[in-house]
């Protein structure tokens, strides 16, 4: 009697476990359909990419990639995105780490106001800033320059760095730097020699997320980039023609645009949760 019930319970448990895996698998499949479609469309011939009814089976081709990677505008846009996202990430990281450290270790006048303002900068709808930025760059003769783009995107990356780094610094045992300070290090030396090396995985994760945010940003880029600085999302957006739907080109450029971000994600998965929540949740 007892044995049979045990077997039953074992079978039920196996079914339950299998069911849980199936549900999760289904969730992942369902959630990834759009991205699966992008990937497969990039392997279709342009004439097959939008069809009625859609073409389910097809012979994959790399021709879209070959064409796209020999298009000068597209390569120029990749370079621009690398320069702008890289530059903005660098500025955000340097300023953000310093400020994050100050917020975590000191109580000083104005700290509340400044950190609140930084949070607002993260939450502000971009529409509020699009028009003034445009006119600002014009007045400063900075429109369509890398400097303007990098400065503008610093507002996107910096808040993330500040709040995320603040949370990493709070977690860091204070004894480490106290020991260094007692030994005669200046605050700056302690920061450079002890503290920053200790939180470097955090810095890496935070700057990765800032990089991706800038890499994908669309609205600022649409209104503020020009011939010189056009970034990848604007270039992709433009690849859909006026009189035709060039889906092969659109999805191919989308896949190429995803590659760096996926690589970064793969290396920083551990700290990503902290990044997504501006340091409020430790992953």
């Amino acid at each position: 009697m007892k044995k049979i019930r045990g077997v039953h319970r074992g079978a039920a448990r196996r079914v339950r476990i299998a069911l849980k895996h199936c549900v999760l698998g289904a969730v992942a499949v369902f959630g990834l359909i759009p991205f699966f479609l992008i990937a497969t469309t990039s392997l279709k011939l342009p004439s097959e990419s939008v069809m009625t009814p859609p073409k389910w089976l097809f012979t994959p081709t790399m021709s879209n990639y070959r064409i796209l990677l020999s298009t000068p505008e597209f390569l120029h846009a990749i370079m621009n995105s690398l320069i702008i996202a890289g530059g903005a990430t660098l500025v955000s990281t340097v300023t953000g780490v310093l400020a994050g450290y100050a917020f975590s270790r000191f109580k000083f006048r104005g700290s509340g106001v400044v950190s609140y303002a930084i949070l607002i900068l993260r939450m502000v709808p971009p529409i509020t800033f699009v028009i003034p930025y445009f006119l600002l760059w014009r007045t400063l003769r900075l429109s369509d320059t890398y400097v303007a783009m990098i400065l503008m995107y610093t507002t996107l990356g910096m808040p993330l760095l500040v709040w995320m780094m603040r949370s990493f610094f709070v977690d860091l045992p204070i004894e480490m730097e106290e020991a260094a300070l007692v030994d005669g290090c200046s605050r700056w030396q302690a920061l450079r020699l002890i503290i920053i090396p200790a939180v470097s995985p955090g810095i890496f994760a935070a700057s990765t997320l800032a990089f991706i945010a800038v890499w994908n940003e669309f609205m600022f880029a649409l209104y503020n980039t020009g011939r010189v600085t056009r970034t990848l999302p604007v270039e992709i957006y433009n690849s859909l023609g006026y009189y035709q739907l060039d889906w092969a080109k659109l999805s191919t450029s989308a896949v190429i645009a995803i590659i760096p971000a996926i690589l970064f994600i793969a290396f920083t998965q551990k700290n990503i949760v902290r990044g997504l929540t501006m340091g409020a949740v430790k992953g």
């Binding site: 390569l75 120029h76 690398l82 590659i259 760096p260």
Partner: peptide, 10 residues
């Protein structure tokens, strides 16, 4: 590596 790969065709 990614930068290099992207930059080379350019």
């Amino acid at each position: 590596a990614v930068v290099a790969v992207c930059a080379m065709p350019a």
